[in-house]
């Protein structure tokens, strides 16, 4: 095991800052892609206009998984290199990911009620998305309940990495659990008329998510910089 360098020096005086215009642009693009896909998509055979929920639900689900992947990558990177920044990126991605995960679940329910007649079914995707949300919640709770910065960083990196390993296992086990007892709910095979709308909405939400994670990370950096400055002032000034 290489000894990670956890020295606290060598950081810029003022963290970089993403322009707020990027956020405005991301949100306007998302509104535009939604307006475009809602107005252009034809009513679907079985579901009618209900299909339009797909444009928010499916990208939210994709971004949830992407965010968790970011948590995994930066958690492992932190354990390997021990850089404080990686911990803060993982934490930011986890917070944004948990938000999108919650949104995915609620949207799924809003879709399920008219489409299936029930708010919830114990389907493989739904259940594993819910378990993923609980893993995210555990990760964020750990961060909230541990005060020491370095301890929090190391522990949450371990929890993030190990939680991510579990995601495919959870998905597989829930799928088996379901399929061995009753047929899985048929996934809607996607008509080409809807793929374009889905793609542009996914990219728009990706844009929003990147902005959120970057901004969250910069705020965390700023907070950390202020804390270090306060510590240095307390130690340095007599």
């Amino acid at each position: 095991m290489p000894a990670p360098d956890r020295s606290l020096d060598a950081r810029p005086a003022r963290p970089p800052r993403t322009s707020p215009w990027m956020g405005v642009a991301a949100i306007l693009v998302l509104a535009a892609t939604q307006a475009y896909s809602i107005s252009t998509s034809p009513a679907e055979g079985d579901m009618g206009h209900l299909q339009k929920i797909m444009y928010v639900h499916v990208p939210a689900a994709w971004m949830t998984f992407l965010a968790f992947f970011v948590v995994l990558v930066f958690s492992v990177k932190y354990l390997w290199k021990g850089r404080e920044d990686d911990d803060l990126v993982a934490a930011s991605a986890a917070e944004v990911g948990a938000t999108l995960n919650g949104l995915t679940l609620v949207l799924g329910m809003i879709w399920g009620r008219p489409a299936w007649g029930v708010w919830w079914v114990w389907d493989a995707r739904l259940t594993s998305t819910l378990v993923l949300f609980l893993i995210f919640a555990g990760y964020l709770a750990l961060r909230a309940f541990v005060d020491d910065e370095q301890q929090r960083a190391r522990w949450s990196a371990a929890v993030g990495a190990i939680g991510a390993i579990n995601v495919p296992i959870v998905y597989m086990s829930v799928k088996w659990w379901r399929t061995l007892h009753q047929p899985p709910s048929s996934p809607a095979t996607l008509d080409p008329a809807y793929t374009m709308g889905l793609r542009i909405n996914a990219f728009a939400l990706l844009f929003v998510m990147i902005f959120f994670i970057r901004k969250r990370y910069e705020i965390a950096r700023l907070e950390r910089a202020a804390e270090h400055a306060a510590e240095a002032a307390a130690l340095g000034a007599p």
């Binding site: 009618g48 206009h49 929920i53 928010v56």
Partner: peptide, 29 residues
């Protein structure tokens, strides 16, 4: 019949979450 209320609810929730998170970020920032 066309389930528009559910569609409105879905998009409404989406924007509440996105704008809500944005407000949270602005205040924390």
């Amino acid at each position: 019949a066309s389930n528009w209320s559910f569609i409105y609810a879905a998009y409404g929730v989406t924007w509440v979450v996105i704008l809500g998170y944005l407000v949270r970020l602005v205040r924390a920032g």
